[in-house]
């Protein structure tokens, strides 16, 4: 069975991988190694650097603002796994139901927020949350609850869920198209009878479709964690991390250190920490999923 098509020669693999690997190493890996190198220096403002060993790392461990930001990232990651991937899966299942009309339009429209830049999304939602003219407060007054009117983005306890909502809203369509295309790889006939109809249908969605597209869902979760561990633009536009540090996230903190405070050495240390933490969380999620699916299999 192991013929050339399934197990090609090493040379063939090497040739196929050469160009993408070379470009990738050039753009991503070399700067990363450079950043690692820089993280051992005090490097403020201009080009001069002073070697300080693990000084930046020692500072990082004691930096409460950073760890607070990490906590915010974790909050957003969890909210988005449930909101983005979870809802995308539900919506994908709903769209596949025979009861739903205008499927094409839903698919086209739901993806639309992805075409808009993050900065514009942030801007649009700032308008929704606006104290005076915003849709949210307008709606609350309309339904006779003016007591609930708030300066939404200035509430330290509410600001994290409030900035998570636009993120979820924008990316549901993104994960939806991925899930739909994964579902498409499953035999259509099988899928159509497994459509969502009643509690029975929901059960089928989980028992039949979920295992079939498990790998794609795992990719979605990985993408979701990766994306939200470095989330930046939306929050930058909406709150710039405020009020105070209540909605600060790691990437924004690193950005502020590197550019607003012009402390490049510490800024690169933070970004290294971001991806060490991201890798850890992604790895953790894989292990978790493995344990969960193992349990299911034994049941």
């Amino acid at each position: 069975m192991l013929t050339a098509a399934i197990k090609p020669k090493k040379r063939v693999i090497f040739l196929y991988l050469l160009i993408p690997m070379a470009v990738y190493i050039f753009v991503v890996f070399i700067p990363l190694v450079a950043a690692f190198f820089y993280s051992f220096f005090e490097w403020k403002g201009g080009p001069n650097k002073t070697f300080i060993g693990f000084g930046n790392y020692a500072a990082l461990i004691k930096d409460t603002t950073f760890w607070e930001s990490f906590g915010h990232n974790m909050y957003i990651v969890i909210a988005c796994i449930i909101g983005q991937v979870g809802l995308a899966f539900v919506f994908a299942m709903m769209i596949s139901s025979r009861l739903v009309r205008l499927k094409g339009i839903h698919r086209t429209f739901c993806f639309f927020p992805n075409t808009i830049s993050a900065v514009s999304i942030g801007f649009i939602w700032t308008m929704i949350y606006d104290y005076r003219r915003g849709i949210l407060n307008w709606f609350l007054k309309l339904i006779g609850r003016p007591d609930m009117v708030k300066v939404w983005l200035n509430e330290p306890d509410l600001v994290l869920p409030l900035i998570s909502i636009p993120l979820i809203w924008q990316y549901i369509g993104f994960y939806m198209v991925i899930i739909i295309s994964a579902i498409a790889s499953v035999d259509k006939e099988i899928f159509e009878v497994a459509e969502l109809d009643g509690a029975n249908g929901i059960q089928r969605a989980f028992h039949i479709v979920l295992p079939l597209i498990k790998n794609t869902l795992l990719v979605c979760v990985t993408l979701c964690i990766a994306g939200n561990m470095k989330v930046f633009d939306h929050i930058f536009v909406m709150t710039a991390g405020g009020p105070g540090n209540a909605s600060n996230v790691m990437a924004m903190y690193g950005y502020k250190i590197a550019f607003d405070q012009q402390n490049m050495g510490y800024g690169t240390t933070i970004s290294l920490a971001i991806f060490v933490l991201s890798m850890t969380v992604i790895g953790g999620s894989q292990v978790l999923v493995k344990i969960l699916t193992k349990e299911k299999e034994t049941l």
Binding site: N154, G241, G242, P243, G244, N245, D260, Q261, Q262, N263
Partner: peptide, 18 residues
């Protein structure tokens, strides 16, 4: 800039009374 960035962030929190 490093000083002002720290101060400005704290000022915003301070104005909220936190």
């Amino acid at each position: 800039s490093a000083v002002w960035d720290v101060l400005n962030t704290d000022l915003q929190t301070m104005l909220n009374g936190h």
